[in-house]
């Protein structure tokens, strides 16, 4: 497993305590999992995603990730309606391991785009990972 300093944590996304990331793209937000999360999970073998049109409140479970011997729930960092899911993950879940920030999971139209400001920035998240 990677040491904290080995992790890839880009500046242009926001993070959550559950190790998801969120990134504004126009008036929608893309959501994925951080390098730390994929490294902890190991080889991801299946991603259970919601349907386009499903709506979630902040903190709701919107899907699950599976490795060979673990299941992790995914919690939505910002409430809203799912406008797209990353269909590539259906056949190639390993994208989340290979390129966690390219491999987004869902795209949502947020109820309130400002909610994203409440998520961690890179440095705060790094602090969380270091146990500060």
């Amino acid at each position: 497993m990677k040491e904290v300093h080995e992790l890839n944590l880009p500046e242009d996304v926001r993070y959550t305590k559950d190790h998801e990331w969120a990134k504004v793209t126009g008036d929608t937000i893309k959501i994925g999992i951080s390098d730390y999360a994929q490294d902890q999970m190991g080889d991801i073998v299946f991603v259970e995603m919601p349907a386009v049109g499903d709506t979630f409140e902040e903190g709701d479970e919107f899907g699950t990730l599976e490795s060979v011997k673990a299941v992790t729930e995914l919690y939505i960092p910002v409430g809203g309606e799912v406008v797209a899911i990353n269909e590539e993950l259906e056949d190639t879940p390993e994208l989340l391991n290979q390129d966690p920030y390219g491999g987004w999971i869902v795209e949502i139209k947020p109820n309130d785009i400002q909610e994203i400001e409440q998520l961690f920035d890179r440095d705060t998240y790094l602090g969380v990972l270091k146990g500060e």
């Binding site: 080889d43 073998v45 299946f46 599976e66 490795s67 060979v68 879940p93 390993e94």
Partner: peptide, 10 residues
Amino acid sequence: KRLDETQAAR
């Protein structure tokens, strides 16, 4: 030898 469980699940 050791078997590839990841491949089996993916």
